[in-house]
Computed example of a mutant assay.
Amino acid sequence: MTANQISDYKAIGQTVQHYLDGAKNGKGALMKPAFHKDAAIYGYVGPDLWAGPIQTLFDWTDKTGPAPDIVGKVVTIDIAGTIASVRVESENWAGYRFSDFFTVLKVDGEWKIINKVFHLHA
């Protein structure tokens, strides 16, 4: 593994940490630096598809409030040049368990989440 690859893994981890910090603190604004301004979110809440701009996640996080007992873990990071995929498992986010897949892109030298798809576990 090269120094650049190690640097990219660390940078992606830091990007995802913004997301987890926002969840823990119940503040969408803390998540915002992780995401590209045009990012989108997709997943099912029960039988209903939740799809739209990432701002809906920020708003939901603000409404739900802090999740001090959340346990979030980066399970995988797979990098190919300027793109990456990241899997995050989160437990006890306001009583919910999520599996997230992020598509990440290096934009102007910074890793940004472009897309979030999630599975809400029963």
Rank of each mutant, 00 (worst) to 15 (best):
A40S: 06
T2V: 00
Y96M: 11
Y42W: 08
Q17T: 09
G65T: 04
Y96N: 13
R87H: 15
T2H: 00
Y19K: 05
G22M: 04
Q14E: 15
I6R: 09
L105R: 07
S7Q: 12
D108F: 02
W50P: 00
V45R: 13
D69T: 13
L30H: 05
E110K: 15
K10A: 14
N25Q: 15
Y44S: 07
V75N: 10
I83P: 00
K63Y: 10
V74H: 13
G72Y: 03
S7G: 03
W50Y: 07
K106D: 09
I54H: 02
K63R: 14
L57K: 07
G26R: 04
I79E: 11
D48H: 08
W60S: 11
R97A: 09
I77D: 14
N92W: 10
G22Q: 03
N4V: 06
A84D: 11
P66E: 15
Y96I: 04
Q5V: 02
F58I: 05
D69N: 11
F98R: 06
E91K: 14
D8W: 04
A51M: 08
A39V: 03
T82Q: 13
G72C: 01
L120E: 04
V107P: 09
Q5G: 00
D59P: 01
D100N: 13
I83A: 06
K106P: 11
L49W: 00
D108E: 14
K112G: 03
Y44Q: 11
D48P: 00
W93F: 13
K106G: 09
I113G: 05
P33F: 02
Y19D: 11
G22W: 01
K37R: 04
T103G: 12
E89T: 09
F98W: 10
D78E: 13
I113T: 05
A34N: 03
K10G: 13
G43K: 02
G26C: 08
F101E: 12
Y19L: 11
A122D: 10
A51G: 07
A29F: 00
D100E: 12
T103D: 14
K106A: 09
A29C: 01
Q55P: 01
E89R: 07
K106N: 13
E91N: 15
K32G: 00
F101Y: 14
K37A: 06
L30F: 12
A80G: 03
R87G: 01
L49T: 03
Q5C: 00
D108C: 02
K10W: 05
G81N: 12
I41Q: 00
H18K: 02
A84P: 14
G72T: 01
T15E: 01
T82W: 03
L20I: 15
G95K: 04
T2R: 00
P53K: 15
A67F: 03
